[in-house]
Design a protein around this nucleic acid. Structure first.
Lengths: 156, 156
DNA sequence: CGCTAATATGCATAAATATTCAATTTGTAT
DNA sequence: ATACAAATTGAATATTTATGCATATTAGCG
């Protein structure tokens, strides 16, 4: 199911570069890019990308990515750190344990910190193990979803 | 028709202080504050206030005021400068002429600058006269509307 | 005051967006 | 491979938001 991720990043580009004010026009643009889906799917995609609809300051509204969503170059490299180091992630209640390749725990942990995932209250790294504590009200599913949207989108 | 302005500022407070994610609940809150209107009116109010609907970062969306819409105390005093100094405003094409009380042109002009109305490209002040140039695509109606929403809402 | 133009509002409805449900596809562990 | 759970999607529908139009209210002005 690589399809969806590709679509998501195309949507992101479209939103970043155009003033789009409804899903139907976005749908058309997507079609021209080769993605043929329905409005229902697009609605879900937008929610997943956390796009908002904000005022242009005078006459209307348009879609907009959340602030911190220009993935800076340095941030990309942190994401790489995560991908290179991480082996597994498991949970017990509000706590999670991430296993990494030996010696990678610290760089992964630091990278997670930089990514500032809203689900993570805090984390601490050993040599190949990271403990994380979920923020109150968050579930492991929330965190895993964040991972999916933040991590896989990076190419090469 | 003071009513609407009061309602607008109550709406602003409600949005600033609560996580509201649809107009019906906002409608209820308004009712409790003593404002009884329909969803149609509320929809128009929100557009007038330029509120956006943005992601809370994990599970949903809520209304949010545009960034620069916390009217700072200093900004309030600038608005007062405008209200105290201004006498009339007239247009010819893309240009506007504001007449002020003698000696007030400068303070009004500076205040307009601070308010950073999107409709104004630039302005220059004499002693009791200000010239302003509208930004391309903007009309005098746009500017006057901005005035109405920015200036009158300030109390005392 | 009464008149008029502008503004504000509600009602009904259109337009836009989200969600339910069933079907299909994909991932994973035998 | 085969079976089962999870994820993805579309179609239909529900929910939410915007708007056209008629009416009501207000601000000016003679």
């Amino acid at each position: 199911m690589r399809e969806r991720h590709n679509r998501l990043s195309v949507i992101k580009e479209l939103i970043k570069n155009n003033r789009i004010d409804n899903q139907d026009t976005l749908l058309d643009m997507l079609k021209k890019e080769g993605f043929s889906v329905t409005q229902a799917t697009l609605s879900r995609d937008l929610k997943m990308l956390k796009v908002g609809k904000i005022s242009d300051g005078w006459s209307g509204y348009y879609y907009s990515l959340p602030e911190n969503d220009f993935v800076s170059e340095s941030e990309k490299s942190y994401i790489q750190d995560v991908r290179r180091g991480i082996i597994s992630i498991e949970f017990s209640g509000d706590m999670g344990v991430i296993k990494t390749r030996p010696g990678h725990a610290n760089s992964v942990c630091f990278a997670l910190d930089v990514l500032a995932l809203p689900e993570i209250l805090g984390s601490i790294a050993g040599d190949d193990t990271i403990f994380i504590i979920l923020r109150e009200g968050m579930t492991k599913e929330d965190l895993l979803e964040s991972f999916q949207t933040r991590i896989p989108e990076i190419k090469d």
